[in-house]
Design a protein around this nucleic acid. Structure first.
Length: 526
RNA sequence: GGGGGUGUAGCUCAGUGGUAGAGCAUCUGCCUUUUAAGCAGGUUGUCGAUGGUUCGAUCCCAUCCACCCUCACCA
């Protein structure tokens, strides 16, 4: 596979078959230690270890535990190691915290002491010992005995500067997590946010459900889908772009409050706010309208922010975002008028195009009045919305699943919530008139034919469901990744997703498995 | 897709038209309360890939690859 040029002038003629990079040497040295441990009857990969505390619990309750004089049993990864003759100091890192351990030859015995000497940064050990405080005041576990729990073969990033290369941090998130505590913290917060929302909705009587990810027909949003194929059924299938149409079927079925935590997929561009696989929370609430949904969403966010930060203000970028309800409520047309002085309310398609043009908005490919208004709004208003703001009453053409506005049938009862210039949620009074819904689908069909790749196909079964009768319903979709970004002060969606998709590694990188395989071959040859 | 940037040791980074350097890590010593421990000594590189220019390229040029930022479309 890898070709290697034979150079006649190479003064290391024997070396051509060998991987000569220093990483291979480092790994070989570590592998030798595995063999040495085994020689000393120490299993480098044992099965379990009984612990009494997380390191975080020890630090939180140190004084009490120190007085108690009971030994603690902890496990963690060696992050730092300092030898001082017949004594070691090492830093141990577990899922919660980092703490210093102190190993004395006269306490663990010469045999174990030598084992500790062999250990590398990155190795995982279990320790038993009592607590102490050093001269300089550092809280420390004085180790009476320890066990090797896992020998690490690959060296850790630099003990001080850590791992900063973004590419490596994404490709090897595990290494990022080991050395960057703030990354661990971000993902803990992500989990807490989702848990808080789940508890909140459960408390409010919403039923958590699961609907198909793999669908014969996509719908519920404006986006291009991922397309795949089911071999046995021999039919095309799509990864869902939204859950909407299935959740509404459940409302038809008689549930009155349902929600789903969903991964959705959209085959579109990637940037700091968009990622092809993203998380949403969708909920549907029968007998409610979009105003009710707005109040629910305010409460949900207020509660989530407070649970996480114990206050309602969150720092994001240079902004202080205030999540104390009520959030500002503006209409799309009203906010455009406020920002540009132009009132689009009574303008038809052609007039709107003219005005958009005057405002310097790119109007190519804008196929209808609604798209023009949306484009103007995005260009002129969106970025200005820093504090939580509901933007309401979207044009009907761009809202094919939302009910027409009770006071203006060119609009729909729909809002999106904007925070820090980013959309974080989208909600409607759901369209439940099957005739109207059918007409909207037909219009979307025309748009599809006219080249709008995001227009939605007709879903006959969904129309059928509506024909059975769906009660008046309010629906909501929350962009989970964006909420997490806002509440953790992260600026790229990749920083709140554990394993962002990457293309194949750059050329010239030797796979670790190849190095290990070479060692394996060598060991077999012995 | 357009524009800008980056790619050198396991990690963090310097650097040069004459085949490369620091700190950390690693290896060998010394050291029983250290703090990125210290001290002494040693090892370590397809300078992202492929072509071109050149007596000679890691450096200049071209193409490609990966990643980041940004603009356009979508959450």
């Amino acid at each position: 596979m890898r070709e290697r040029k034979q150079n006649e002038k190479d003064n290391k003629p024997e070396a051509s078959e060998q991987i000569q990079i220093p990483l291979a040497q480092l790994i070989k040295t570590r592998r030798e230690k595995v063999r040495e441990l085994r020689g000393r009857q120490v299993n480098p990969y044992p099965y379990r270890f009984e612990l009494t505390h997380h390191l975080g619990e020890i630090l939180a309750d140190f004084d009490q535990l120190e007085k108690g004089d009971e030994p603690v049993r902890v496990a963690g990864r060696i992050m730092l190691k300092r030898k001082m003759g017949k004594v070691f100091f090492a830093d141990l890192l577990d899922a919660t915290e980092r703490i210093q351990v102190y190993v004395r030859k006269d306490e663990v015995g010469p045999g174990l002491f030598d084992v500790f000497d062999i250990l590398d940064l990155g190795d995982i050990i279990g320790c038993e010992g009592k607590l102490m405080v050093t001269k300089t005041g550092e809280r420390t576990i004085r180790v009476s005995s320890f066990e090797v729990l896992t020998k690490s073969l690959h060296p850790l990033p630099d003990k001080h500067s850590g791992l900063t290369d973004k590419e490596m941090r994404y490709r090897r998130r595990y290494a990022d997590l080991i050395v960057n505590p703030e990354v661990r913290e971000t993902f803990v917060k992500r989990a807490r946010i989702i848990q808080t929302i789940r508890d909140f909705l459960n408390e409010k009587g919403f039923l958590e459900v699961e609907t198909p990810i793999l669908q014969p027909l996509y719908g519920g949003g404006m986006a291009q889908p991922f397309k795949t194929h089911h071999e046995k059924l021999d039919i095309p299938m799509y990864l869902r772009i939204a859950d909407e149409l299935y959740l509404k079927r459940l409302i038809v079925g008689g549930y009155d409050k349902v929600w789903e935590f969903c991964k959705d997929f959209r085959n579109e561009g990637l940037d700091r706010l968009h990622y092809p696989e993203f998380s949403m929370i969708e909920l549907y609430w029968a007998f409610a309208d979009y105003r009710d949904i707005a109040r629910l969403l305010e409460e949900l966010l207020r509660h989530t922010v407070f649970t996480l930060h114990e206050r309602y203000k969150v720092t994001y970028d240079e902004h202080e975002i205030d999540f104390e309800p009520p959030f500002k409520w503006v209409t799309m047309l009203g906010s455009i008028k406020e920002q540009t002085g132009v009132d689009f309310t009574e303008l038809d398609y052609r007039q709107a195009m003219v005005q958009a043009d005057k405002l310097g908005v790119e109007t190519e490919d804008l196929l209808n009045r609604g798209k023009v208004i949306e484009a103007v709004w995005e260009a002129k208003v969106e970025a200005t919305l820093i504090q939580p703001t509901f933007v309401a009453d979207f044009p009907v053409e761009i809202s094919p699943l939302a009910k027409k506005h009770r006071e203006d049938d060119r609009l729909t009862e729909r809002f999106e919530l904007f925070i820090a210039g980013q959309e974080v949620a989208n909600a409607f009074s759901e369209l439940n008139d099957p005739m109207d819904q059918l007409e909207r689908f037909l219009q979307q069909g025309k748009a599809l034919q006219a080249g709008d790749k995001e227009a939605q196909p007709l879903d006959d079964d969904f129309i059928t469901a509506l024909a059975y009768g769906m009660p008046p319903t309010g629906g909501l979709g929350i962009g989970v990744d964006r909420v997490v970004m806002l509440l953790t002060n992260q600026h790229s969606i990749r920083d709140v997703i554990f394993f962002p998709q990457m293309k194949e590694m750059k050329e010239g990188t030797i796979p670790v498995s190849q190095i290990l395989n070479q060692i394996l071959e060598e060991e077999k040859g012995e």
